[in-house]
Design a protein around this nucleic acid. Structure first.
Lengths: 319, 319
DNA sequence: TTGTAGGCGTTATCAA
DNA sequence: TTGATAACGCCTACAA
C-alpha cells in the first residue's frame, strides 16, 4: 500500500510538502502541487486514516448505536442521519450491543448518537468527556451530552384523551419491557388521561415490543371472559401481533375490540384495517439530530437539541 | 485520557513493561503485573485502538456494507453475523452508501462483507489485496475475495416448476431493478421453468423491490383487461404492495390472481392470507458467513464459502 | 525480568 | 515555498 512517503519520493518532494499538497494547504506552489497529486493518483494513494487519527484525534466517523437491527423504526432514522452526514463528508457507522460500547471506549468515532438502553450511562459519560453525544433513549444531560426524546407522555396523553370521548369502559395497556423508559413514559400519559375521566383500573399486560409477544398476549386476551374494549400497545409491532392473534380467535378489530399502537411503522399500513397509531416522524428526527451533531462537531454556535414530532391516526383499528 | 505512559509512571515501571503486563505477556513478574493492572484500573486506562492499529495493522472490526437500512432481510443477516463475531471478540460495523466505500478505502476494518450492488468492484478488489472480503451480491472471486450467493435461479426454477402443475395459463413476472444480479438470476429460473412446459410469453413488469412500486404495478394490473393468473414477484415487499393494490381494486388473492414472492420476510406472515414465497434462511446465512470471515482472519485452514438455503411455501397466496 | 529505542503513517512546528 | 523532525500511543526486537 502506497504511503505518503512513496508519493513524496515519486514527486521528488519532502514528506511534508506532499502532505501540504494532498491536504490543499495554501502554501504550496501550483506546479509542485500538481506533481504531487499526479504521483498520488498514479500510486493509488489513500491517506491512512488511522495514522491521521493518531495525530489529529479526528476520524470523520459518527457512530449510531442501536439496540438491534430488527427495529423497523431505525431504517428511517438511519437513512435520514446518513444523508445529512454525507453532506458534511462524515461517515456513518452503525453498531449494536457490545460492539457499540467498545467503539465508544476505543473512540473510533468523533461523535455518537445512542438509541440502545442496554448501553451503560458510565460508558457514555466517559466518552462525553471528550466528544459530543446525543442520547435518544434516556435522559442524560451534561458536558457534551445531550438528549433528544420522543414526547411519549404528552403524545399518549393527548391521544388517549380523544379516545376516552368514544366512551369505552374497559381499558388495557400492553407494555414494553417494564424498565424501558419510553414504555414507562407512555404508560404515564395513558394513566393520566384515563384518571382524568375517572377510570382507575387499567388491566396491564407485560410485553417486550416484539410481534411475537404481541401475538401471545393476544391469545391470552382471547381466552378472557371479560375482555377489554380498548387496548393500547406501547408499540406498533406488538399491536400487529395482537390483532393477528385476535383475528385467529375470531375476535375482530375494531368490531369487537379497538386497538392502537405507537410509532407509525410501515407494517401498520399493510395490515387490514390499517393500524391506528401515534406516528412519530423518525425521518425528520434523524435529520434534525444529524444536524445537531454536525453543529456540535463544528462547535460554532450554541446548539439547541429538538425533539421529534408525533401525529395521531385514529382511523383503522379503533371503532 | 490516560495513556500507557501514565500507567507506567504510576506503577513505577517502564512503558514496555506496562505494555507487557497489560497484554498478558508471560515475561512479567507477578507482582509487577499486579501493580501495573492496579494503576491501569485506577486511571481508567483504555488502550488507544488507533495507536495499536497503526502498529499491528489490526482493528478488531469487521465491516458489513449494505445497500440501505430499510431492507427487512438485513436484520436477520446482521443479527446473526453480530452474534458470531462477538464470540471472537470482533466488532461489527455496519455502513451504507458512500460511507461504506470510504471505510473500505481507509481500512478501518479487518475484513468486509458486502451486500450493496452500488459499490464498485474496483474498490473491493483494492481492499482485497490486503484483507478478506465476502461479497453476497455479485460474483467476484480472486485473491482474498470470495462470493456467497443465494441460489436464485435454482430456487425459482424449482418453485415455479411446482407451480406449473397447477395449470395456470397466463404468467407474469414483477422484476426488481433490471440490472440487479439477483433479479436477473431469478428471472432466468422463472423463464427456464416456464419454457420447459411450453409457456413462452411472460408478461413482465418492471419494479424496484419496494412496497410502493409493487402497489403501483398492482393498480396497473387491476386495470388490465387480460389479467395474469399468476404473478411472481422478485421479492416479497413488492408482492405485499401488489396484493394490497389488487385488494383495494376488489381483486382478491388468491381467488382471482395467485401471487408469490421471494425472501420470506416477516411482513409476509402478517398479511392475510400469508404470502407464498421462497424463504431464504438469512439467519443461517449470516452465521455461516461470519464463521467464514473468522476463519479467513485466522488464516488457519482452507476456507470453504457456503451458500444459504431456501425453502418453498406454497400456501397462502397461491390458489 | 525489565528497560531502551525504533517505528507504524500522519500532521505540524520550525527553520532554511 | 519547501524540508527536517518531533510528536501522536502503542508494540516489540534487542540489550541490559
Amino acid at each position: 500500500m502506497a504511503t505518503i512517503k512513496d508519493v513524496a519520493k515519486k514527486a521528488n518532494v519532502s514528506i511534508s510538502t506532499a502532505s501540504y499538497a494532498l491536504n490543499n494547504k495554501p502554501n504550496v506552489a501550483k506546479e509542485t502541487k500538481e506533481r504531487v497529486l499526479k504521483a498520488a493518483r498514479e500510486l493509488g494513494y489513500r491517506p491512512n486514516i488511522i495514522a491521521r487519527r493518531l495525530k489529529t484525534n479526528k476520524t470523520g466517523n459518527v457512530g449510531v448505536f442501536i439496540y438491534g437491527f430488527g427495529g423497523p423504526i431505525f431504517s428511517d432514522l438511519l437513512e435520514a442521519i446518513h444523508i445529512e452526514l454525507l453532506k458534511e463528508d462524515l461517515n456513518l457507522i452503525v453498531s449494536t450491543g457490545k460492539s457499540s460500547t467498545k467503539m465508544l471506549q476505543e473512540k473510533l468515532i468523533d461523535a455518537a448518537i445512542i438509541f440502545d438502553a442496554f448501553m451503560e450511562d458510565d460508558d457514555i459519560i466517559r466518552f462525553a468527556k471528550e466528544r459530543p453525544v446525543i442520547t435518544l433513549d434516556r435522559k442524560l444531560v451534561g458536558k457534551n451530552s445531550y438528549s433528544s426524546r420522543v414526547k411519549n407522555e404528552e403524545l399518549v396523553y393527548g391521544f388517549i384523551k380523544e379516545i376516552t370521548k368514544k366512551g369505552f369502559k374497559k381499558y388495557a395497556y400492553l407494555s414494553g419491557p417494564k424498565d424501558n423508559l419510553d414504555n414507562i413514559d407512555r404508560y404515564r400519559g395513558y394513566q393520566k388521561a384515563l384518571l382524568e375521566v375517572g377510570i382507575e383500573n387499567i388491566s396491564k399486560f407485560e410485553g417486550d415490543y416484539t410481534v411475537e409477544k404481541g401475538y401471545l398476549i393476544g391469545e391470552e386476551i382471547a381466552k378472557l371472559k371479560e375482555k377489554p374494549e380498548f387496548i393500547f400497545c406501547a408499540n406498533d409491532e406488538m399491536a400487529v401481533g395482537l390483532i393477528r392473534a385476535l383475528k385467529n380467535n375470531k375476535i375482530y378489530v375494531p368490531h369487537d375490540i379497538s386497538v392502537a399502537g405507537f410509532d407509525g411503522i410501515e407494517l401498520g399500513l399493510y395490515i387490514n384495517p390499517q393500524l391506528s397509531t401515534i406516528k412519530i416522524d423518525y425521518k425528520g428526527w434523524g435529520k434534525k439530530i444529524a444536524k445537531n451533531i454536525i453543529d456540535l462537531l463544528k462547535k460554532t454556535t450554541k446548539v439547541t437539541i429538538t425533539n421529534p414530532e408525533g401525529y395521531f391516526n385514529y382511523k383503522g383499528t379503533i371503532k
